[in-house]
């Protein structure tokens, strides 16, 4: 990207900056337990809880930093944090 004046002309370019590699634990959802209350979506600091038509579809692993807030806040304990590299 060529250097212009110090104004970023395009919105949302940070999406190209993937922060998923920061993660040591990743969230995994058990859809049998999930009630789609979307509390995890509301509390995700990284816009990494994927929701489609009101349903939790998974996580944006390219950007999720693995903070664990979603798992901690899930009222149904449907999300668990799994160590990266393990199933």
């Amino acid at each position: 990207m060529p250097a212009r004046i110090s104004v970023i002309m395009k919105p949302g370019t940070a999406k190209e900056y993937e922060t998923g590699s920061w993660r040591s634990m990743r969230p995994v959802v058990d859809k049998d337990k999930c009630i789609n209350c979307l509390v995890c979506w509301m509390y995700c600091p990284d816009n990494s809880v994927l929701v489609e038509k009101g349903e939790l579809k998974g996580f944006r692993y390219s950007h999720c930093k693995g903070c664990g807030i979603c798992a901690n806040q899930c009222p149904k304990k449907a999300i668990t944090m799994v160590e990266e590299g393990k199933e």
Binding site: G12, Y17, T19, W41, M42, P45, V51, C67, I69
Partner: peptide
């Protein structure tokens, strides 16, 4: 509702470099 909120286009995207678990983007 929260479901409708999840459909609203985001104003602050992913890819920011705040620490994991930072409350600010929330």
């Amino acid at each position: 509702s929260i479901k409708e909120m999840a459909d609203v286009p985001v104003k602050l995207t992913e890819g920011h470099r705040l620490c994991a678990g930072c409350a600010e983007p929330i």
